[in-house]
């Protein structure tokens, strides 16, 4: 019971930290890989505190599809550069004015990183679930 109540708060702080290190990846230590691992770490905490059924109730997604979507993101951002007559995997960046956030530097490498993030979550959770369900 103590573990479950603690999970209810800690889970969100862990995921928040993983999102922070995901976005910090460009200038500071962090990035898609460590962010994804930390998010799946939070999900594993959920699995330990509750059970497999609860996780399926909360996140009704097949983590195998997450791998596919992540790979699609990575290939998509890499292939998009071909349309602008530049080599494969060339990235673009620029300062964009967003209504509320003000001037923000956006870089397409973030989308590539998002692909890494999703693949890492997908792979880790698939491994854990496959091992966990094996009776």
């Amino acid at each position: 019971m103590i573990l479950q109540v603690c999970t209810k708060v800690c889970l969100f702080i862990i995921i928040l930290f993983s999102v922070h290190s995901f976005f910090a990846g460009h200038y500071e230590p962090g990035g898609g890989f460590i962010g994804g691992l930390m998010t799946s770490g939070a999900l594993v905490l959920l699995l330990i505190a509750y059970d497999m059924k609860t996780l399926k109730n909360i996140l009704p997604i097949d983590f195998k599809y997450l791998i596919a979507v992540g790979l699609l993101f990575a290939v998509g951002t890499a292939a998009a550069s071909l349309f602008f007559n530049v080599p494969f995997l060339t990235h673009a960046f620029g300062d964009v004015q967003i209504p509320i956030l003000g001037e923000t530097a956006l870089h397409t490498a973030t989308l590539f990183d998002l692909g890494v993030y999703l693949v890492v979550i997908g792979v880790t959770m698939t491994i854990i679930q496959t091992i966990g369900e094996d009776e």
Partner: peptide, 13 residues
């Protein structure tokens, strides 16, 4: 906003 999105993803929790 980030917290809102995370809570939305985990809303069934």
């Amino acid at each position: 906003m980030t917290g809102l999105i995370i809570i939305f993803i985990f809303r069934r929790f």
